[in-house]
């Protein structure tokens, strides 16, 4: 046998079957694709939204030492913001997580309610492939239909709405230098690209996003479990942002990440945002309540979810 064949034999002896995790490398390719630039003006208006809702502005006001404008009780109204986390780098966005942020009139305590995306939607959306669910594509990034459905489901008035593209979330997490997540056990999920040992981890943007989106290897694999993790991530992000924004470089990166990652409705004018920001001076994000809209399997189709009417009503009443 000649030397080349001996070498080939050695090669075969050393062979390894490609592991299933190889597909993770394929998704790196997907992320490398050029992102479509989103329209400009509304994006600016969106800048303050996530930040206002969570952390930045109150902290900024405190930091600058300026006396905030005082608001007499009754002059400020409660505000409900609808935030839609979406896959949205190309073409039509796909709603993946849907969150209602309630800022009460006294602005003391923010309530964040996640609406499970598999909840049956009352209204059909023309042009959207929702399969009758709350999630699904958002044609042309139009949020009218999602908004209408959320209002019909919750009977809560939605004052403003914004899409946060997941790419923006990744950048926000990176801007604050990573967030802490807690894993009850080791996870290796090729579908989301998440591979971490059990315990606490400081993770950067991409693994943080994988943590928020993973359906496999964490918890019970349900969407509800995923929603819990998304809320944990929001809280971790709020906490990290609050600690880190005293650094002007971090602050600039964070604001930039938010502006590039969001598209908001037209009513979120700079004037309104300024007012909103000022009114949030007394809000402490650490006290925010994170809730999940109570749901039960649809009696007609167990693969679907419907709101647990009694308990949902009790929750949503506090937001009206």
């Amino acid at each position: 046998m000649d030397d080349l064949n001996l070498l080939r034999d050695l090669g075969r002896a050393l062979d390894r079957e490609p592991p299933a995790t190889l597909v993770r490398q394929r998704s790196r390719l997907a992320q490398a694709r050029p992102r479509r630039r989103r329209p400009g003006p509304l994006v600016i208006a969106a800048a303050a939204l996530a930040t206002a809702a969570l952390v930045l502005v109150p902290a900024l006001l405190r930091q600058s030492g300026k006396a905030p404008a005082t608001h007499r009780p009754g002059t400020v109204k409660a505000v409900n913001l609808l935030l839609v986390g979406a896959d949205g780098v190309r073409g039509d966005a796909r709603a993946d997580s849907i969150v209602l942020v309630h800022l009460p009139a006294d602005r003391r305590r923010v309530t964040v309610v996640s609406l499970p995306r598999d909840v049956e939607a009352p209204a059909a959306c023309p042009g959207a492939t929702t399969g009758g669910r709350l999630s699904g594509t958002i044609p042309n990034r139009s949020l009218t239909c999602v908004t209408r459905n959320v209002e019909a489901l919750t009977h809560v008035r939605v004052d403003h709405v914004a899409i946060l593209a997941y790419a923006g979330l990744v950048e926000m997490v990176d801007a604050v230098g990573g967030v802490e997540v807690m894993l009850p056990r080791a996870v290796d999920d090729p579908a989301s690209g998440l591979k971490l040992s059990a315990g606490r981890h400081l993770v950067r943007g991409r693994p943080a996003l994988a943590y928020a989106r993973a359906r496999h290897g964490l918890g019970d694999g349900s969407d509800l479990d995923r929603v819990k993790r998304q809320q944990a991530l929001m809280a971790a992000l709020a906490k990290a942002a609050r600690e880190k924004i005293t650094n002007p470089v971090t602050l600039a990166r964070l604001v930039n990440a938010v502006t590039s990652g969001m598209v908001a409705d037209r009513a979120l004018t700079p004037a309104f945002l300024k007012e909103l920001a000022t009114s949030l001076e007394r809000t402490d994000p650490a006290t925010a309540r994170y809730k999940i809209a109570p749901v039960v399997p649809d009696p007609r189709d167990p693969a679907r979810l419907v709101l647990d009417e009694k308990r949902a009503e009790a929750l949503f009443r506090t937001l009206r």
Binding site: P19, T21, L22, R24, Q25, R26, R28, L29, A32
Partner: peptide, 9 residues
């Protein structure tokens, strides 16, 4: 694994 990903990128 990583190197294959790097190659395609």
């Amino acid at each position: 694994e990583d190197l294959v990903g790097d190659t395609f990128l």
